[in-house]
Design a protein around this nucleic acid. Structure first.
Length: 218
DNA sequence: CATAGGATCGCCT
DNA sequence: GGCGATCCTATGT
């Protein structure tokens, strides 16, 4: 037992380190975008902009399964100036403008040239609440402040001009711009995950009914 | 070049 | 639940 004890401590330390880690390339380059969309629930989405750190727990996602998914911008292998970023390696940000005024934040997944992506539809803010309140242009923070893909970007300072950003790199200092994700060891009970059809994709025919939307209540 | 429409939101009724 | 805001994107001439 006295030989085993230090090993247990080491294992605990190792797990602790792992539980605070920035999500790495290998998390994003896996092939199952629907699984990744589920696993992103409970992860922390962090931005640093103009020296301000803001952060929230991801609580709603949608998977977009590339060339075979009629709801995806990359359906049929379409490549345009806008969608080109979707063909990057997993762990790249795909951010585009919706309805002329909302930047929508997506995470590219899978290997290069396979245009899968996960749309982040909701977060629960945890850090930088005063900055978030200012960006939202409201007097007091309410519970639904981070619910809705347009709101996620607005409160975190994410803008469509940042599309293509590498999500696996933290900024090198307190000033540099960055968007990244962290696993802080939050455990999500699979039974608590709600799933259903994606929002706003009625044009996608039968694919509009796929249960690719996932959410948890926090 | 012109134009229709969009992976939305907040305010109004 | 209905609607306007607001402008880029994709497509067609």
């Amino acid at each position: 037992m006295c030989f085993l004890f230090p090993m247990l401590v080491l294992t605990a330390e190792k797990n602790k380190f792992k539980s605070m880690s920035v999500l790495s390339r290998s998390f994003y380059t896996r092939t199952d975008v629907v699984r990744i969309a589920r696993e992103l629930l409970g992860k922390y989405l962090v931005t640093q902009l103009n020296g301000r750190l803001t952060c929230g727990i991801i609580c709603e996602t949608e998977a977009y399964a590339g060339v075979s998914d009629r709801a995806s911008h990359a359906f049929g292998g379409r490549r345009t100036h806008r969608t080109e970023i979707m063909y990057s390696t997993g762990g790249t940000a795909y951010i585009y403008l919706c309805y002329g005024m909302y930047s929508l934040f997506n995470i590219v997944t899978n290997q290069k040239d396979i245009p899968h992506a996960v749309l982040i539809r909701g977060i629960k803010p945890t850090e930088g609440l005063e900055t978030i309140r200012q960006r939202a242009d409201i007097k007091e923070i309410k519970k639904d402040i981070g619910i809705g893909p347009g709101k996620v970007s607005k409160i975190l300072g994410i803008h469509y001009t940042q599309t293509g950003h590498d999500l696996t790199q933290k900024p090198m200092n307190k000033i540099e711009f960055g968007i990244w994700l962290e696993d802080r060891g939050m455990n999500i009970d699979p039974n608590k995950i709600l799933s259903g059809p994606r929002i706003g994709v009625q044009y996608a025919g039968k694919d509009a009914m796929l249960p690719y939307r996932f959410q948890i209540s926090l």
